[in-house]
Design a protein around this nucleic acid. Structure first.
Lengths: 131, 131
DNA sequence: GTTCGTGCAAACGGTTTGCAACAAT
DNA sequence: ATTGTTGCAAACCGTTTGCACGAAC
């Protein structure tokens, strides 16, 4: 099992304590948190962590390919440590975002679009989660 | 051909001059504009139109089912007059959003998702537009 | 005269940036 | 010494809101 520090250095990121703390949280979660949610969580273990550092760190992680920024909610940036292709389901009541495995849904026809060269795609599903 | 005024009244919206001006622009366009882009455009014909009225009007239109708010870009709300199901292609260079007809792409498997009751879905494609 | 819509300006919330202090090399 | 990172506060940008004026019934 790769350590967080190894992951960071392999992506060309200096493993400072703050970055390690943020990485430990966000690389494990599957809750698609916003930056402020990350801050709230990580601050419990690392109380001096500033909001600015969280934002800078998350942007750095995105830049280095550790995270993906997903435009799934209005007005806020949500971060996803799952960088390989997959789909998303959004519960319309709670707003929660769930991963849907790539193989669970299949898409056809995207290769024959006339004017568009598709580099990537995902299905965004909305509805309510079954209890 | 239905007039804009008829469209507004049929949706329970009082057709004020400002609302008509906004509707004339946004119901015709296929550019998926942001609120500020709507304001910039409509203001040329209707110079006293305030930003607040544009925001209020667009929100009202969404509420009344004339528009859909699409979470396609980070940090800004984009409005789409095309309310029937369809997909979207986003040019990664320019950020432009294009409609993709519902029949152009087909999705299978969404009905057999275990924990999710899907009410609607769309495919979001990214890449570059062919010249 | 009450209701509804508008415009302005101020407030708001999420995010970024400038800068001084600090750590590491 | 230089480079890179942090924390704070202020700035920023898109959006919402409070309020007074005005139009319509």
């Amino acid at each position: 099992m790769k350590t967080v520090i190894e992951t960071l250095t392999q992506h060309g990121i200096q493993p400072t304590p703050q970055r390690i703390a943020v990485a430990e949280f966000i690389l494990e979660t599957d809750t698609h948190p916003t930056a402020d949610e990350v801050w709230a969580s990580v601050r419990q273990h690392c109380p001096t962590l500033s909001r600015a550092t969280v934002y800078n760190t998350l942007n750095l992680f995105v830049e280095k390919g550790l995270l993906k920024l997903q435009p799934l909610k209005e007005g806020v940036a949500v971060f996803d440590p799952h960088v390989k292709p997959h789909h998303h389901f959004i519960d319309e009541e709670s707003g929660e975002v769930f991963d849907v495995p790539w193989e669970a849904v299949s898409v056809t026809g995207e290769k024959s679009l006339e004017n568009f060269e598709v580099r990537e795609y995902q299905v965004v599903l909305r509805g309510c989660r079954r209890a």
